[in-house]
Design a protein around this nucleic acid. Structure first.
Lengths: 114, 114
DNA sequence: TCAATATATAATAATATGCTTATATAAAAC
DNA sequence: GTTTTATATAAGCATATTATTATATATTGA
């Protein structure tokens, strides 16, 4: 988080990052899961670069962490993040989205990596 | 809130609105106070139209309410707002900012209306 | 009625954002 | 080693956002 910013300003940065439907859904899905890029591409029916760019913003901010496993990059919620409690409280207000993963499986579109 | 939007999408709209340091501070200050525009102009050292435009966005979304009293427009947090619990939880994560009002009084810059 | 005060609104310009397309990288499979 | 798969990055463009400047409105008080 930038130097010289107040707590409120830092929080505003976090909220702005979560103030995008794709990123907010990514973070909500990561609440209970570790996912690789391909799953998000399927779930959002979005382009790979678009998803990748959203993930990079979240990673650069420290909200999520990235872990390379072979060909795949797995993303997780960073529970050591300075503003994790803010993120946590926001996620608690949102309905569970884990059915998205089941839909992928049912459609047979769940990529084998994940 | 727009039609056809999911709960997560609606929440993203709220977070985007609060993802601006000026608007987030406005809403935090309104947590315990009812304020008119001139106070915000003083506190933020911002232009009157800038503050007015931020307040309009918050009002249009339903996050705050506006009440005309004579020449002045007083703004309050809308506790009947659909996503008030989300707003409330976010504000709980932020440090109290009521000292801002005391600073105005001490500087003698607190406008008489408020 | 006229001037002052408080505020809203409109127009504009600068900047930021998010997507697409194209390309680069890196690991795995053959 | 060449191809395939998964992903990242870069460039470009369209749109959105925010501040400024100028102006309009509405209330108050002389």
């Amino acid at each position: 988080m930038g130097i010289h910013l107040t707590e409120v300003e830092n929080a505003a940065v976090v909220l702005k990052l979560l103030g995008d439907k794709t990123r907010l859904m990514i973070v909500k899905l990561l609440e209970n899961n570790t996912c690789c890029v391909c799953e998000f591409v399927e779930i959002f029916q979005a382009s790979q670069p678009s998803v990748s760019q959203h993930l990079r913003k979240l990673k650069d901010a420290g909200i999520v962490t990235e872990e390379r496993r072979g060909q795949w990059n797995f993303y997780s919620l960073n529970r050591d993040y300075d503003y994790y409690s803010l993120v946590e409280q926001i996620l608690k207000q949102l309905p569970n989205q884990d059915h998205k993963f089941k839909e992928l499986e049912e459609n047979g579109t769940r990529i084998s990596c994940c």
